[in-house]
Design a protein around this nucleic acid. Structure first.
Lengths: 172, 172
DNA sequence: AGCAGAAATGTGATAAGGTAACATATCCGT
DNA sequence: ACGGATATGTTACCTTATCACATTTCTGCT
């Protein structure tokens, strides 16, 4: 059997990089952030975050649950949802609504405006920095006296690799 | 009991206005847009759009389905999902992911960058114009060679009325 | 008009995503 | 050690969404 039970077509970032390294360094930063905030990064929560970081892609709650259960934690939906909700609240993970999925935050504690770029072909999800988007959104909201507390910005399209593949194979 | 079978706390725009008027004029524009595009605005589809326009708020697929069924159309989920999907594809309606809901587009055919402002207190949803957000998003995507095809931009927060209410009742 | 293919609809079944509610266990300040 | 707050485990259930397939309706073509 293959190492992962499900095929994992979704690479987190579009550029190749040292997964293990970036995962562990992000994990360390996440732990520091949690401690700073006084947030309790308990075993289930920590493990959930590790799973997201290891896979380095957007994962459904049930998918995370499966892994948690395999590690000896409860195997009921709330187990995963609670851990993930905590991570999102704490800013250690994000929810990708278009995919009904969750992904570890790559910049924990940085107070950023996460924007997700989702490739419709390979499913890869990248967390891009886009302060400008936040600024523009705030301006638009202010224009109608709306107070923004949280924002979801997600773009569906083609990642560099797939746009090339499509351009070559599709038209030509 | 109130005139509507379900409580409808969600006013579409934050400012009061002539619902019936804006609904019917939007509907006419939508029909024109559909014809122009060669999109078949069949009875179910048209009725689904009417329902969204009449209610003038974000509605769940099952909620729309209920109304469609009451009007003599099929009462199975695909009926609603297909009609709604068509409307979204054609740009006559939008999907509000945060609410797992759909809302009629208020500017059909205008090629706009819809941004949804969702009040977490009263549930009102407003479709705001935000060309600047689109521009910023495109720029951020271009920076990593990502090609954007569709974007979802949603902000959760407080509408003018609720921010006032909260400010008064909450703190003070 | 008659026909073939495409598009749309109706329907049943079921998958996937998400919560409510409640009991139990653990942590933390006193 | 005690008591409140926080976290976890578990049962049950609700909502949202999709698949598959039969049937109908539309469209362009001859």
């Amino acid at each position: 059997m293959a190492p992962s039970s499900k095929t994992a077509p979704e690479l987190a970032a579009f550029a190749a990089h040292d997964h293990a390294g970036c995962a562990s360094s992000t994990l360390h930063r996440a732990q520091a952030v949690a401690q700073e905030k006084g947030a309790r990064l308990t075993p289930v929560r920590l493990r959930a975050l590790e799973i997201l970081l290891e896979e380095h892609r957007a994962m459904g709650a049930y998918e995370v649950l499966e892994r948690l259960a395999a590690d000896g934690f409860g195997n009921q939906p709330p187990v995963a949802y609670r851990a993930l909700e905590f991570l999102v609240e704490t800013g250690l993970a994000h929810r990708v609504r278009r995919l009904n999925a969750f992904a570890a935050c790559m910049h924990p504690g940085e107070d950023h405006a996460p924007v997700f770029l989702i490739c419709r072909t390979c499913g890869a999800v990248a967390e891009a920095e886009a302060e400008g988007v936040r600024v523009a959104l705030m301006a638009a909201a202010a224009a109608v006296d709306f107070t923004v507390e949280r924002a979801t910005v997600e773009a569906l399209g083609l990642c560099p690799r797939c746009v090339e593949a499509e351009g070559a194979g599709g038209a030509a």
